[in-house]
């Protein structure tokens, strides 16, 4: 009888331990250098000694890959590429590596083109954007981007870019191939609440900055013309603050271009995220790194061990009207 009871005790205790440990089965490390596949819709950040924006850092071989399927943000647009995301963190920083197929390296961004007689301005660049809720957000956690702008409502009116709660905010990382990558950072922005559903304005605002950041390259006249230009490259798509010279019409021949923005890395919360993006062989590899806690009120605080829902979107030479979003809620977890 005593033996029976002991056996039962053991069985129940075992059940207890199994139940308590359930779901915590660690992912087996990958073999032969390929990173292991992760849980569905879950980005698992691995702990490393030190992070950097190096896309070839050795820890990427150990970091589980999240494959994100993207679909058109607007219902009538085709689906987008698969985005492969990995993450790692150290005591201070999180670093996220994203990779997706893109046939073109699109650096046009409100670029001025001179046809010999007049300027036309236009062009859309490639981008990848991350959205992180600031604070705990029940609706975003269960519905993802559908909880914000991309809800499934049949009513176009309901596609307002806000939330019905006054204290809901989102942190955004807006990496742009032309406007931010050239100066090694990602625009650190915020989605604020537009509590009025009739308000169709953009809820996207830049985080605070002390100096720097992209400046529109225009003289403000009618018709407008660039204010600055590159000193040496008459086909430039990128114009750095350090390379700018006052615009001189005589330098251009027909087909010449002048960048639409003068770029400088911002100082302040807007420049919290450092980035390195490289386009090669028909794909983008972008690595972004930020302090886990920037202490800036306009940023989401990332706490290792605390899972956080997030969303992601990419665009190929397209603006907001045709960006490709992850429909599922994605979750950042920590290992």
């Amino acid at each position: 009888m005593k033996r029976l009871l002991l056996a039962e005790t053991l069985a129940l205790s075992l059940a207890f331990v199994v139940a308590a440990c359930g779901g915590a089965t660690p992912t087996a490390p990958g073999q032969g250098g390929s990173a292991p596949a992760g849980k569905p819709n879950t980005l698992t950040a691995v702990k490393v000694d030190a992070t950097s924006v190096d896309a070839a850092a050795p820890y990427w071989a150990q970091s589980p890959k999240l494959e994100v399927t993207t679909s058109g943000a607007a219902p009538d647009k085709p689906a987008g590429p698969k985005v492969t995301i990995q993450a790692a963190y150290d005591g201070q920083y999180i670093v996220i590596r994203s990779e997706w197929a893109d046939a073109t390296n699109s650096l046009q961004d409100d670029t001025w083109t001179w046809d010999g007689k007049a300027f036309t301005q236009g062009g859309e660049q490639d981008f990848i954007a991350f959205i992180w809720p600031i604070g705990n957000n029940a609706t975003f956690a269960s519905k993802g981007c559908a909880a914000t702008c991309h809800n499934s409502s049949a009513k176009q009116d309901e596609w307002w870019m806000g939330s019905d709660s006054a204290d809901v905010n989102y942190d955004g990382w807006f990496w742009m191939a032309a406007r931010t990558n050239a100066v090694s950072y990602t625009d650190d922005i915020r989605w604020v609440n537009l509590t009025d559903p009739k308000d169709m304005g953009s809820p996207r605002v830049d985080d605070a900055k002390d100096s720097g950041g992209p400046e529109e390259n225009t003289d403000g006249a009618t018709p407008p013309a660039p204010k600055f230009m590159s000193a040496k490259d008459m086909q430039a798509l990128i114009l750095l603050e350090a390379d700018k010279v006052p615009f001189d019409q005589k330098m251009l021949v027909a087909g010449g271009t002048v960048p639409g923005f003068v770029l400088a890395k911002p100082v302040g919360s807007l420049g919290d995220v450092e980035a390195k993006g490289v386009w090669a062989d028909g794909k983008w590899v972008v690595v972004q790194r930020r302090l886990l806690n920037t202490t800036h009120p306009d940023d989401a605080v990332l706490i290792p061990s605390k899972p956080l829902p997030f969303g992601v979107a990419v665009a190929d030479a397209a603006g907001n009207l045709d960006h490709k979003i992850a429909k599922d809620v994605l979750t950042l977890e920590w290992k």
């Binding site: 705990n136 957000n137 029940a138 609706t139 956690a141 269960s142 519905k143 899972p307 829902p309």
Partner: peptide, 10 residues
């Protein structure tokens, strides 16, 4: 994650 009374996949 926090309670969402409208989630239909939980």
């Amino acid at each position: 994650f926090p309670a969402d009374p409208t989630s239909n996949n939980y």
